[in-house]
Design a binder for these strands. Structure first.
Ligand SMILES: NC(=O)c1ccc[n+]([C@@H]2O[C@H](COP(=O)([O-])OP(=O)(O)OC[C@H]3O[C@@H](n4cnc5c(N)ncnc54)[C@H](O)[C@@H]3O)[C@@H](O)[C@H]2O)c1
Ligand SMILES: NC(=O)c1ccc[n+]([C@@H]2O[C@H](COP(=O)([O-])OP(=O)(O)OC[C@H]3O[C@@H](n4cnc5c(N)ncnc54)[C@H](O)[C@@H]3O)[C@@H](O)[C@H]2O)c1
Lengths: 213, 213
DNA sequence: TTAACAATGTGAAAATAATAACAAAAAAAC
DNA sequence: GTTTTTTTGTTATTATTTTCACATTGTTAA
């Protein structure tokens, strides 16, 4: 039997990316796609693509490639939850607003249903259909709306207390965009990302490439 | 001799993260730190930390741990360029503005010195000290200001043409925040990041954790 | 009809990354 | 002054991820 939890982490990330690319193909009316076409879009090898699809048990057609629609649906069955997942954004500053704009309407199974802030000017407003609540009501709203994932975009100084409040409220996953790493119990899945790390990595390899010459 | 280009990619990322944490320690007046303290902050093991530091040839003091100041400086010597790197942001929308705010004054060796847009309302403005130019002048400005890294935050439909223009202008590294993967010649270092992939990954592991019960 | 081609699927190998195990040594405790 | 503790540094081992190599099989074309 296909054991989802044994799928490599990297495969999960790539499946999300494949689907993103496949959705564009579908829109353009493309019905089939070869592994090497997916590979070229994602800057990886065709073998890698085929192996990932093998891992999720999808079989293409020889010489025709993979059925775009079918593959999108299968990836959905693998990585999405049947019942969808409600998401909240904590901290309606620049980044929080940018994310709400970006996500709104993008993925049907991931719904941003609430945002939170401490600034009274923001509380009570609605942005792209997402209402902003006071952080004081966080636990109540999270439970009422069955929010399972929180995206943290508060100032770094508030990262720790925000994570604690989210855990307290029974959140199941946190995506932390503040540059302050936070601690959560092991049953809460945590993903952290700092844009400065990415930029420093790019800068490092630019340096290396220049030195090579 | 220490061969920088042989450092594992993951080590580079972690070095950036270690430094971020160390800078906070330094601010607090902490002079030394143990490998297990760094490890706990980053949610990794102490061995991993020691191994990374071994790879860059840094030696701590037995029982005192690592000298915070020294380690910050050494990481700088490894991952920063001597002369600093000038950076541009292309697309001054929500995300572009958020990034400029976030980066400004954060890292002395990475300087955002220009932004670009096609919207006449934005061209000519300055944000956090960063002037906004027309994309028509991109090649000229990039060469004049010796900009080597570009951060793409334009709408996805303009991703391809923006990447081409950057390459044309002689850029050396691109950090692509649009959800559209782009192609660049191999001498240009490319890093792509899509927030939806991160969110879908969190959602997937939340699902898996719930199924386990 | 048959040979060449172009694609998938996968076991085996290689590369990369993380962890375990432990020696060495300074500091602390006794 | 000796033993215990604690921490670093590093080799060996294990785990994970990617790539190679090639069998398989429809399709195209000679
Ligand atoms: N701007 C970026 O591009 C960027 C990039 C990466 C990471 N970050 C990080 O993301 C975070 C947000 O960045 P930003 O530019 O949006 O900052 P911002 O100052 O614009 O927004 C922060 C928001 O959080 C609210 N807030 C403050 N304390 C709060 C609390 N305890 N609970 C809930 N809300 C609270 C503020 O009222 C404000 O609306 C920061 O930690 C920043 O370092 C930002
Ligand atoms: N908002 C987010 O949180 C978020 C997150 C991840 C990725 N993204 C992606 O980042 C990109 C920007 O997102 P956003 O929310 O800032 O969008 P936005 O619409 O607010 O901003 C886009 C900006 O780019 C400018 N622009 C348009 N065409 C351009 C061109 N050819 N050259 C230069 N500038 C041009 C526009 O004038 C505008 O200022 C999008 O591709 C989006 O998918 C956004």
């Amino acid at each position: 039997m296909l054991e989802l939890k044994n799928l490599p982490h990297k495969t999960i990330e790539r499946l999300s990316q494949y689907r993103r690319a496949l959705l564009i193909c579908l829109e353009k009316g493309q019905t089939h796609i070869y592994s090497h076409e997916i590979a070229r879009i994602q800057h990886i090898t065709a073998v890698q693509v085929r192996r990932d699809l093998m891992l999720i048990g999808y079989t293409g057609t020889l010489r025709k490639g993979y059925n775009v629609k079918e593959l999108i649906d299968l990836i959905g069955e693998i990585i999405d939850s049947q019942e969808g997942i409600n998401v909240a954004i904590i901290g309606m500053g620049n980044l929080g607003r940018a994310l709400i704009n970006y996500f709104s309407g993008k993925r049907s199974h991931l719904k941003i249903v609430a945002s939170f802030d401490i600034n009274p000017d923001k509380i009570g407003n609605t942005m792209s259909g997402v209402p902003c609540f006071s952080t004081e009501d966080m636990e109540k709203v999270i439970r009422e709306k069955n929010i399972r994932v929180g995206i943290m975009t508060v100032p770094a100084d508030f990262a720790t207390q925000t994570a604690e409040a989210l855990v307290q409220a029974g959140i199941r996953g946190i995506l932390n965009y503040t540059p302050k790493p936070v601690n959560v119990p092991k049953e809460v899945y945590l993903e952290e990302y700092d844009m400065i790390t990415s930029l420093e990595k790019v800068a490092f390899y630019v340096k290396i490439n220049e030195d090579k010459k």
